[in-house]
Amino acid sequence: MKDIKVLGTGCANCRNTIKLIEEVAAARGVAITLTKVEELPEIMKYGVMSTPGVVVDGKVVHAGGIPDRSKIAGWF
């Protein structure tokens, strides 16, 4: 079970990132728990400066823009 958090204040890119991660996870048959982190102080704790940011099992793996499909696949 991968614990994935998407950091972002709810812009279009953040929503697309979440959709994409769900798609890739479903295609790979990987079980994940996906949480949205929308509170600014919470986001800032991860030290991310450009949203959307992605945190996998507590580690920041991506910041800024929608991640590539292949990049997402690499996290699983």
Partner: peptide
């Protein structure tokens, strides 16, 4: 620098911190 107005705030705080 790549900049999107939706991440202006995280950037702002990131700089200050």
């Amino acid at each position: 620098t790549p900049f999107c107005s939706c991440s202006a705030i995280p950037l702002f705080i990131g700089f200050l911190s």
